[in-house]
Amino acid sequence: MQKLTRIITLSVALTVVSGCSYVGVYKRDIPQGNLVTEEMVSQLQPGMTREQVTYVMGRPLLEAPFDTREWDYVYRLDKAYAGVEQRRVTLTFDNMGRLVNVEQQGDFSSDLPVSTDTGAGPATETADPITGINAPSQRVPTSENATAP
């Protein structure tokens, strides 16, 4: 009986230690879509052409499949240890391709944390392993292109 108790206790302890962790798991913010800021939306004016809107906002994430007069810019940020923040801008154009209406959804007043993560990642063939910056290519002299002293 005592041996069975030890085996059960050891099994439970190994299960808890190996698979179950009371320490939190690392999570990352997950941005998706077109980054839309208040500054970008404030530059939009009725009467702008599609090219001008593309210059300010970039290409839309969604174009209505049955009505090409409507463009949707959607940005969704799934915060690791918080909720989800979503911003949406719907632009409507007239038949001549001029901007008619700008509709906003979401909180544009707060700045979104945009990660410029330049951390370690896979190195390229010409990258410096310390800094991760591509090094200028260097030719290795061979017997064909080497000059005699």
Rank of each mutant, 00 (worst) to 15 (best):
D78R: 13
Y75L: 05
P65R: 09
E85Q: 14
Y26K: 13
Q45Y: 09
V74E: 08
Q138H: 09
Q104H: 01
V41W: 00
Q43K: 14
L112C: 09
G24S: 15
A82L: 09
T68N: 15
A148F: 07
G33V: 04
T54N: 11
T68D: 14
L77V: 03
V41M: 01
M57N: 02
T92E: 11
L77H: 03
D107Q: 14
E51Y: 00
Q86P: 00
G83Q: 04
Y55F: 08
D78E: 12
R6K: 14
Q43H: 09
R88K: 09
T116V: 10
L4R: 08
Y22W: 14
G132R: 01
A127K: 01
Q32F: 10
K3L: 11
Q52C: 04
D128M: 12
G33I: 01
G19S: 10
R50S: 05
F66L: 14
Q52P: 01
A135L: 15
Q86Y: 02
A135Q: 15
T68F: 11
S42A: 15
I8H: 05
S143K: 12
G47N: 03
V100K: 07
V17S: 09
G119Q: 01
T90G: 01
M40C: 03
S109D: 14
R69P: 02
S110V: 15
W71F: 08
K79L: 10
T126S: 13
L62R: 05
I133P: 02
T118P: 00
Q105L: 10
T92S: 13
R139P: 10
V25I: 13
V53H: 00
D128W: 08
V12P: 07
A120W: 08
L62C: 01
Y26C: 07
R28P: 02
A123W: 06
V56Y: 02
A80Q: 06
E85M: 13
N101V: 11
S11R: 05
R139N: 14
N145V: 05
Q104S: 13
G58N: 04
Y75P: 01
M40N: 02
E51G: 02
M96Q: 15
F93V: 08
N145D: 14
L35H: 03
D111N: 13
F93M: 10
E51N: 05
G33W: 01
A13C: 13
A64M: 12
A13M: 14
P122N: 12
E70Y: 10
